[in-house]
Computed example of a mutant assay.
Amino acid sequence: MTASTLPQAGQRTTAPGLLPGAAGPGHPAYATAGRAPGRTRPRTDDRPGFWRAPFSGAAFREIGYTLTSLPVAIAGFTFAVTMSMLGAALVLTALGVPVLAAALAGARGLGSAERGRTRGLLGLDVGAPGPVPAPRTPGRWAALTARLGDTAGWKALLFHTVMFPWRVLSFVLSLTFLVTGWTVALLPAYSWVFPHYVGWPGYRLYDYTSGGVHHSFYLSSPFQIAGASALGLVIVFLTPALVRALTNVDRAAVRGLLGK
């Protein structure tokens, strides 16, 4: 290299193929050079795989969501139905408007809490709806009547009404699969208890007498216990997929009725 091509002290150099002053390899913008504007790297799916799902935090958070949804749904449904029916019964009187306005305000508050619960347990961040419509004239009565035009409040009221039966079903299915799967899968660990302390030859599936004939079936042999445990493991590994499908309905409902 000749003296004319050597960089002088304090002189900035550029990477080959870049114009002077362009971002070099050490510059943060160098990594995005040549990339089409407005495009970003696709995000990878951080959900656990099939074999890790039953032991992952994401699966337990989703199960926690479905289990806690039952008391939340009971409270929301009770509030929505009670206030709606009371407001409808009093709509021909001066008390109907304040009751319905309170119902819409309360439904908005419950919807905000539900968005926070969905964000924390399901990882779904849904933006809050727009503000309540401003009254056209000053005064408390105008503010109350303006709230009756709050579309977001009516949608939140609808959410707490229609989601109640779904969340009861989600609670029952999630709890049934969770308890049944682990109870049956761990049968080899506690099957010795039945002959030693209960007096059964094994885990009793049924034992009854009908028409003078005794019918019974116990899981007592190692082969039977192993087969039952394998069935329990199948349920354990299918439970996260079931709960994921159940919570997808909640995700769609939160987006459609509680978001912008």
Rank of each mutant, 00 (worst) to 15 (best):
I63W: 02
G34T: 10
A31S: 13
T32H: 10
R35I: 14
R47H: 10
A58G: 03
P25E: 02
R41T: 15
A23I: 00
H27R: 04
S84W: 06
M83C: 08
D45I: 04
L70M: 11
S56D: 07
F79C: 02
P48Q: 04
A22C: 01
F60R: 11
D45H: 01
I63V: 11
V81E: 02
T78P: 10
G38R: 10
T66K: 02
G34N: 06
G24L: 06
Y65D: 08
A31P: 06
E62Y: 02
L6Y: 05
F55E: 04
G57A: 12
A9H: 13
L70E: 11
G34E: 07
G17I: 07
P7M: 00
G49W: 02
G10K: 10
F79T: 12
D45K: 02
T66R: 05
M85Y: 02
D45T: 05
P20V: 08
A36L: 15
P16K: 05
M83E: 04
P7K: 04
T32R: 15
P48F: 01
A22W: 02
G57R: 14
F77N: 04
D45C: 09
L6S: 11
P71W: 03
F50S: 06
G24M: 06
A53W: 04
A80L: 11
A15Q: 12
T66M: 08
I74Q: 12
L67K: 06
A75Q: 06
H27T: 00
S69E: 03
E62N: 13
D45L: 08
G34P: 13
T44P: 12
I63S: 07
A29G: 11
A53N: 05
P16Q: 08
T68H: 05
G17A: 06
I63M: 14
Y30M: 08
P7F: 08
T68Q: 10
F60Y: 10
G26R: 11
Q11D: 08
S69N: 06
S56W: 03
A33H: 09
V72P: 00
G21R: 01
T13H: 00
R41S: 15
F55H: 05
V72Y: 14
W51N: 04
A23P: 15
G26L: 11
G21K: 03
G49Y: 01
Y65G: 06
L19W: 05
A22G: 08
T78C: 12
A59T: 07
S69W: 00
H27V: 00
G38H: 07
L67C: 09
G38N: 07
R12I: 05
G64L: 04
M85R: 11
E62T: 02
G10F: 11
R35Y: 10
A22N: 01
A23V: 00
A80C: 10
A31H: 12
G64N: 08
L18S: 12
P37H: 00
A59L: 00
G10V: 00
P28G: 02
D45W: 00
A29S: 14
P25Q: 03
Q8M: 09
T78V: 15
A33L: 15
A33T: 09
P42S: 12
A36V: 03
Y30I: 01
T66D: 11
F55I: 01
T32F: 12
L67W: 07
P71A: 09
R39Y: 12
T68D: 06
P71Y: 08
Y30H: 15
G26K: 08
Q11K: 10
A15E: 15
H27N: 13
G57D: 10
P37G: 04
P20A: 14
T14R: 14
T68N: 08
T68K: 03
